[in-house]
Design a protein around this nucleic acid. Structure first.
Length: 947
RNA sequence: GGGCGGUUAGCUCAGCUGGUAGAGCGCUUCGUUUACACCGAAGAUGUCGGGGGUUCGAAUCCCUCACCGCCCA
């Protein structure tokens, strides 16, 4: 049988994948030969998701760890699954319904819509599973989990009990008082019409405007005149720079439409400019003239006297900072907008609303203000941004905009930070609504302690700081979403609004005999369910065998972007519920960027599709590339040319194997005990790379593992060992060389398998009779005992001699094909031995004839090695000047290096302080250099004498 | 404004606990010799961002400045 000229990734990958699947190669516990378990939970991809390069990276790293442990005989589980992605999934299905011109979700109703989502999930929700298989990810697919499995609406085939876990945790935390409902200002997504958590908000800097308006002081009822005050501005030294009598207070805002809901104007208590008017009322310069509202001027620490005018309008229901000021100072929270971000049309008339607000401004307790709608009739129903334009126009027309020197309205163009929904891309509106919250402060401490006390390690270390910082300043977590797709909140209300929390309606009813109950329509944040991923996927709350065996899990591999979303919450929730850390190590990897280091995004058009890369170069090449770039704490920058380089590597090992096969080498034998130095040397090198690979993987240095193996296979095995072996295939060492090469290649397949599973599996099956597939191969355990120091020294000597001869030939312009004589002018015992033992190798690789003793003469170039000098006749036309230059250049370099070393060794402090090992190393280097230098001097003298 | 990270060969990046700089790609020259041109051989290119300090010795540790990026306000 002869092998093809290169690896056909496309055909082989599909065939090998099918074979792995057929033999249940990835099933939990497959190939286990010891009792330790190794468990990895996949960060569940979104059910609507398809494989992007970030997934490819994340799962490649996990797969490397998993395959490595499986080969080492651990009882290994890599748990797959997806999360139900509330908003994203609802969005996908709604869009599909729209495209098909079907009735929308409100028309068909909640149950029918949820059924449609399930149908969609069953048809299209498995996309990423097949893509992960193409990557070679060795997840135990028989255990595939889903965060909505077992929900009451779930169809056949979606059993499972994740829903039980979610509901059970909600009820438990509710009963402990950790989950509560309350009216709070939340991030509201006007597109999806739901609350979202602050993590789902992206703050972006966008061009905006800052308008400056005058809020006139109130008319004094006694005098009928507007109040005035002396407004004085001073510079840093206290000199007065402006003094004028004003009948207004100047307010800067980026959101004029919210002025309608202002409840106060706040200034800093230490701001002398406004001290005279604190406690007085001012007028909101918008709304029907006859019902202009008055609001109090209050003090609060929040306003920054150096920012804008130093006075801040307070709209408690539409800004998080203002909300704080308003609640501290008893200012009412007037809601202005509906769930779509349009100005409200409900509630009382403007006139009635303004009247109530005025009473409130005068200090009267007006109670619940939810019916108060301070949007003037002509603005009701307008989109918030249209309303903004109208407000600005009205104020400007009335002359209440602050003007510049030319009398034009003063509007600053400036960058402002604006919140956007990460899914909807619309401006998030802070909204006052009833929501459910987890009081995270009550469960956060064990999650902090676990990392602080080392029960869970976050790598790289710098991320621990981020983790602590977030957890130590944690805010309540909004877990309710106004969606239909998700776990419905297990709380029922009676007619009076009393809450009954229970796992089922029957249990809730039992708590409220005779009362008519309605269930809270909201669902839980998807992350609330993914937070239970480690135990939920293993069958909790049932006491399953899997749970007992595989929990706590071992390593979580994830990107830094979800440390808060997911990692921190898993820590909190698992600790709160089963009181165990869910994993002992969190390995946080970087974000894959494009070749120039830019974030990949659809809008930039620089997205690299991993499946295209797999099509073009094969999954192994992609995986090897990603692994080689996985330096801890760094973002990999990926371009197709990188992958191409590793595709070449795949071809390289393929061809080395092909060469071996052509020469009768077979794998599958045991480790030979060869006599020839070359064979002993490569076995030692193999042992070195085995140790280095394990060390790298054990410390999550995937790049070191991948690059080390690359350098070993290409630089040691292919460049040297295979070349050395060629002359050995005839003669007395032929058998042991075949055995050694077969063994070495087997080791390459074994060690490369976690990173490049397909080509190695293919080579494994092509090159020998094997008891089992490579996926279940036994990871090697040998080490330093296989290193033969003598063989090492000898072969390194041979290699550097060959390199020196090649270099000299090339520099002197000797034709590549020409065979030169190799005259040994001097050689010590070790050199002679090495020369004799390896002569055929040297002859072949340096293209020289068999070495013979002699003296240097005219027309020869000089080459030196440790303990030996050589002369190579290159013909009568030798360019003596060029040869002199070559030798002198070499001499200059060696001389410089030697001087440096000598200087160090002559420094008594170095000898005193440095490690004995370092000193010895330095001495050895100097001895070698001096030897080299004297040989070069001799050669130069010879050359001179020859002239 | 606060925090974190980065600045090393033309490009993209390694360089873990200090011992005197490496890889891949690209470039130049040569090459079809028992696998591989997705190859082989040889070669050129670095005041390791600037400045200061600790040390016998600093790309590596400390301080400082500059620029770039990310996260949080």
């Amino acid at each position: 049988m002869s092998m093809e000229k290169s690896f056909d990734a496309k055909a082989a990958e599909a065939r090998i994948s099918a074979e792995w699947e057929k033999t249940n190669a990835f099933t939990a516990g497959a190939n286990a030969s010891r009792s330790e378990t190794f468990t990895v939970m996949i960060p569940p991809p979104n059910v609507t998701g398809s494989l992007h390069i970030g997934h490819a990276f994340n799962n490649t790293l996990q797969d490397i760890l998993v395959r490595w442990h499986r080969m080492r005989g651990f009882d290994t589980l890599w748990q797959p699954g997806q999360d139900h992605a509330g908003i994203a999934t609802q969005m996908v299905v709604e869009r599909q319904m729209m495209e098909r011109q079907e009735p929308n979700r409100r028309e068909i109703g909640r149950d029918a819509f949820v059924d449609k989502i399930w149908a969609w999930k069953q048809e299209s929700g498995g996309t990423i599973i097949n893509q992960l298989k193409r990557l070679g990810a060795s997840l135990d697919w028989s255990r595939n989990a889903f965060t909505m499995s077992g929900a009451p609406s779930a169809p056949t085939g979606e059993e499972g009990n994740f829903h039980d876990a979610v509901i059970r945790v909600f009820v438990e935390l509710y009963n402990k008082g950790i989950i509560y409902r309350g009216k709070r200002l939340v991030n509201w997504d006007p597109h999806f019409e739901t609350a979202i958590s602050d993590l789902e908000v992206e703050n972006r800097e966008v061009p905006g405007h800052m308008w400056h308006f005058k809020y006139p002081l109130a008319v004094n009822p006694e005098t009928g005149e507007r109040e005035t005050y002396e407004y004085v501005e001073r510079d840093e030294d206290g000199n007065i720079t402006l003094r004028e009598t004003r009948d207004y207070i100047s307010i800067a805002t980026t959101r004029p439409e919210t002025m309608l809901g202002d409840g106060a104007v706040a200034v800093h208590p230490d701001d002398p400019r406004y001290a005279p008017i604190v406690g007085k009322l001012c007028e909101i310069p918008v709304g029907p003239k006859e019902h202009r509202r008055l609001i109090p001027i209050i003090t609060d620490e929040y306003p920054d006297p150096d920012f804008g005018s130093g006075a801040v309008k307070i709209t408690g229901a539409h800004d998080f900072n203002d909300y704080g000021v308003a609640t501290r100072n008893g200012i009412p929270l007037y809601a202005l907008m509906d769930t779509k971000g349009a100005m409200r049309v409900d509630g009382l008339s403007y006139e009635d609303s303004a009247a109530i607000a005025t009473r409130a401004a005068n200090g009267e307790d007006v109670g619940d203000v939810s019916a108060v709608n301070l949007v003037p009739e002509e603005l009701r129903g307008l989109d918030r941004f249209d309303a903004r334009k109208r407000v600005i126009a009205a104020i400007t027309e009335e002359g209440l905009a602050v003007t510049d020197a030319e009398g034009a309205p003063f509007v600053e163009n400036k960058k402002i930070m604006q919140p956007f929904g990460d899914r909807s891309n619309v401006v998030i509106e802070p909204m006052l609504t009833d929501q459910w919250f987890v009081d995270t402060k009550k469960i956060v401490q064990p999650a902090i302690d676990a990392v602080r006390e080392g029960r869970t390690t976050i790598l790289p270390e710098q991320h621990q700081k981020v983790y602590f910082h977030w957890l130590e300043n944690i805010e309540p977590w909004t877990i309710s979403r106004q969606l239909w797709w998700g776990h419905q909140i297990p709380v029922w209300y009676d007619g009076e609004g009393n809450q009954y929390c229970a796992a089922t309606e029957a249990e809730a009813q039992a708590q409220a005999p005779g009362r008519n109950l309605t269930r809270d329509p909201d669902v839980l944040d998807t992350w609330f369910s993914s937070g239970l991923w480690p135990i939920g996927t293993l069958g909790w709350p049932e006491d399953t065998e899997a749970l007992r065996k595989y929990f706590p899990t071992d390593v979580l591999v994830t990107g830094f972007d979800i440390i808060f979303f997911w990692v921190a919450r898993m820590m909190m929730m698992q600790l709160a519920i089963v009181e165990k850390e869910p994993f002992h190590t969190v390995y946080v990897h970087g974000l894959v960027r494009d070749e120039k280091g830019a974030k990949m995004s659809k809008s930039k058009g620089n997205v690299i599709d991993p499946l295209t890369l797999i099509d073009d170069f094969g999954a192994d090449a992609l995986r090897m590339t990603l692994a080689s770039m996985a330096a801890m704490g760094r973002d990999p920058k990926l371009g197709p040319r990188h992958v191409e380089g590793f595709r070449n590597f795949v071809t390289k090992i393929w061809n080395a194997s092909r060469f071996a096969e052509m020469n009768g080498v077979r794998g599958g034998g045991g480790r030979p005990a060869p006599r020839h130095t070359v064979n002993r040397w490569i076995i030692g090198e193999t042992a070195r790379i085995r140790m280095a690979t394990d060390e790298a993987l054990a410390s999550y240095r995937f790049n070191d593992a991948a690059n080390g193996l690359y350098a070993f296979v290409w630089g040691k095995v292919c460049d040297w060992y295979v070349e050395f072996a060629k002359p050995l295939f005839d003669g007395e060492y032929a058998d042991e060389t075949r055995a050694t090469m077969g063994w070495v290649l087997d080791q390459c397949y074994l060690m490369l398998h976690p990173v490049m599973p397909f080509v190695t599996e293919e080579l494994w099956s092509l090159t020998g009779e094997r008891g089992k597939m490579l996926v279940h191969g036994d990871w090697p355990e040998y080490g330093a005992e296989l290193i033969d120091a003598d063989a090492d020294r000898e072969i390194n000597w041979v290699i550097s001699l060959i390199e020196d001869i090649r270099s000299a030939r090339a520099q002197m312009g000797v034709p590549a094909g020409a065979r030169l004589d190799l005259i040994v002018t001097e050689a010590d015992a070790a050199a002679s031995r090495a020369l004799t033992a390896n002569a055929p190798l040297i002859e072949r690789l340096a293209r020289v004839n068999a070495p013979q003793d002699g003296v240097a003469g005219k027309g020869m170039i000089a080459v030196s090695a440790q303990g030996a000098s050589f002369a190579l006749p290159i013909g009568d036309v030798i360019d003596a000047a060029a040869e002199t230059a070559r030798l002198e250049k070499s001499l200059a370099k060696s001389g410089k290096d030697a001087d440096g070393l000598r200087k160090r060794l002559n420094n008594p402090k170095f000898v005193e302080n440095a490690d004995a090992e370092v000193i010895e190393e330095t001495r050895d280097k100097l001895i070698a250099l001096d030897d080299d230098i004297s040989r070069l001097h001799a050669a130069l003298a010879q050359l001179e004498a020859m002239r």
